[in-house]
Computed example of a mutant assay.
Amino acid sequence: MPKSLNPFALIAERWQPSAKFVERAALATVVMAVIIVVTGGAVRLTDSGLGCSTWPTCTAQSLTPTKAMGLHGIIEFSNRMLTDVLCVFVGLAIVAARARTPWRRSLTRLGWAQFWLVMSNAVLGGIVVLTGLNPYTVGAHFLSATALLTVAVLMWQRAREGDGPARDLVARPVRQLAWLLVSAAGLLIVIGTVVTGAGPHAGDAHTVHRIPVDWREITQLHVDFVYVVIGLTVAMWFVLRAVDGPTTARRRVVELFAVLMSQGVVGYVQYATHLPEIVVGIHMLGSCLVWIAVLRVALALRERSYEVAGTAAVPAQDSAVPAAV
């Protein structure tokens, strides 16, 4: 496409965002991804999952909720509209990354990956409604939102470092332990999704199909994996101290441990108080924070230099940021 017809090139000619602006735009997509997860949980916890009875319109005759649909319709439709807000932030991150010189293709690819995840998850959300809150589609909807959060964190990380080859800061066994931690945390989230699909908060006041397992037993498995993740986190801290690992990585592990402890307290409170909606919502927020913290631990074990065409480049004053999170 000729440069004159490329809208991104035209924007780049007229606007040069700073590296800090690109970083903040990427961080904004992380925040919005968390908000989407939490508000999606609010839809389920307020029994508003079918507040809009169809998709993409709210009813067969109306794009927006009608007065007769009450608060449930407003809540469900508001969550749908947040997807548009998320698209705005993702679009801003893409445009900012593309407009900055030199153009970093790695950043724009991560931005476009977020865009397509948002689009696919919007369609999946429609399938959730059209299938009457089938727990398997609801679970897939949540896991897709977690995938979006993952890519958003990766883009935020890449915005804070260079495009040179990744350089490991620790030995291979330490990296393997980190990825074991990531895998265990991922399984923890998946099992938590099954707990949601089998538990009492179905998303609608009427009878909704649930995953045919005892939610108390699957909750116990979820708790067991919490202990596994905590154990791996503690092991990671001791290993990093033993090998004199990067200070940033050790700090990230401490942050992860603090988030895990907070999430554990919330988890026990929600179980002891028979799953009140507000506490379950806080627990969903905590799951996002745990996942972000786990990813940041793994990403802190390598760095990328600022290189251009094989030559180490000194970053501009506005982009002098640490190489690793």
Rank of each mutant, 00 (worst) to 15 (best):
G281Q: 00
L240R: 01
L86S: 07
A202Q: 12
M284G: 02
H222F: 09
V297W: 00
L154E: 09
T46W: 03
T311D: 10
I230Y: 10
W237Y: 13
T57F: 07
L295N: 02
E255N: 05
G286L: 04
R302C: 04
V153C: 13
I278G: 03
A316K: 09
V30W: 00
W156T: 13
V265S: 09
Q270H: 08
D214F: 08
G186F: 09
I292N: 03
S144H: 00
D224I: 12
V22N: 04
A93W: 03
G162V: 11
V153D: 09
G264A: 08
G139C: 06
A312N: 11
Q176E: 14
W291R: 02
G245T: 04
M32N: 04
R302L: 02
C58A: 07
A33W: 01
P200L: 15
T108A: 06
H72T: 15
F77M: 10
A185T: 15
V195T: 15
L154T: 12
V88G: 10
V290D: 03
G286M: 00
W179H: 13
G267Y: 01
I211M: 12
S78W: 09
P135A: 05
V118Y: 11
A298V: 06
L86N: 06
P65G: 11
G281E: 00
A242S: 12
A184E: 12
F142M: 13
V314Q: 10
A28N: 02
L148A: 10
D163S: 14
A113R: 02
A316T: 14
S183E: 11
A184T: 15
Y268R: 10
A293M: 05
C87V: 15
M81C: 15
G51V: 05
S262E: 02
V138S: 05
A205S: 15
Q176H: 10
R14Y: 06
V290M: 07
L285H: 03
V34R: 02
I36L: 11
F238L: 13
V128H: 04
Y268W: 08
V290K: 00
T150Y: 05
R109H: 13
V195N: 08
A320R: 11
E217D: 14
R160Y: 02
T146A: 13
L275T: 07
R172S: 14
G231Q: 11
A235S: 13
V254T: 12
A316N: 11
A152G: 10
W291T: 03
V259R: 01
F8G: 04
G186V: 15
I278L: 08
W179M: 14
A25F: 00
L301Q: 01
I218F: 11
R210A: 09
W215R: 12
S183M: 15
V38M: 08
V239I: 11
R80H: 06
G164Q: 06
V223H: 13
G264K: 01
M32T: 10
A309C: 06
A33P: 05
R302K: 13
V325A: 08
D84E: 14
W116P: 14
W112P: 03
P165W: 00
V259L: 05
Y136M: 07
S78C: 14
R160C: 10
L71T: 12
V151M: 00
L130A: 12
Q220C: 09
A293V: 07
A309I: 06
R296Y: 03
R250W: 04
A159L: 06
G164K: 07
P173R: 02
M119W: 12
E23V: 00
S78V: 12
A147V: 09
F115C: 07
M69E: 05
T150I: 09
L187F: 15
A272H: 04
